[in-house]
């Protein structure tokens, strides 16, 4: 991704936004169709959330929030979930990730362990919101449900974020 984004083709913001949209569509389909192969006790990493955080760190809070909403809405439609639930959680996660935006320092942040901490924090906030609305039709305690699924999903997403971090770290021409 680092080499892709440093290429001339993606120097223009519009091209990068199109790339985010295409990635969001691809990841939505991958989530629904392929991620069951890496599921551990029904828990999977949230690849779309990693994309949202990437966008927020690379483009800033405003774009991160918008990408979060768009990616979340796309995933709600693709997965058959309650419309707006992922959009809400990812919008807020994108906004939170935007606080860590530093001009021209995106790849430094993404290529370091700091990226994992940001992903963990944003995934925690994301899952807190998502599972709060998820358990509403159920007669279960939110905290007991969140401690099982919310925390597990947060940790798995953080583990998955190691791959983009290592990839960017190895392209240290920035």
């Amino acid at each position: 991704m680092a080499s892709i984004f440093s290429a001339d083709l993606f120097a223009k913001p519009a091209m990068r936004y199109i790339a985010y949209a295409v990635m969001a569509m691809l990841l939505s389909v991958v989530h629904v169709v392929m991620l069951k192969y890496v599921a551990v006790q029904s828990v999977t990493p949230d690849l779309l959330l990693i994309l949202v955080i990437w966008a927020a760190l690379a483009e800033g809070q405003f774009i991160g929030t918008l990408v979060g909403f768009g990616a979340g809405l796309l995933y709600d439609v693709a997965s058959g979930d309650v419309l707006g639930s992922n959009a809400l959680a990812k919008t807020v996660a994108g906004f939170v990730a935007g606080y860590f935006f530093k001009e021209n320092m995106a790849l430094v942040t993404i290529g370091s362990a700091r990226f994992l901490l940001i992903v963990t924090l944003c995934a925690f906030v994301h899952n807190l919101l998502y599972f709060f609305f998820y358990v509403q039709p159920m007669e279960v305690s939110f905290w007991s449900f969140f401690l099982i699924y919310g925390v597990a999903t947060t940790l798995y997403t953080s583990v998955a974020a190691v791959f983009p971090m290592l990839y960017v770290n190895r392209q240290k021409d920035w």
Binding site: Q61, F62, T65, L66, G68, F69, G72, L73, D76, V77, G80, D81, V82, L83, G84, S85, A87, L88, T91, V92, F95, G98, F133
Partner: peptide, 22 residues
């Protein structure tokens, strides 16, 4: 603009959630 965008999108998300299932 960041806060206005966040508020707008959160309100839109809630509106969609009240809209119900897909």
């Amino acid at each position: 603009k960041n806060y206005i965008t966040l508020t707008t999108l959160v309100v839109m998300s809630f509106a969609l959630m009240s809209f119900g299932e897909l």
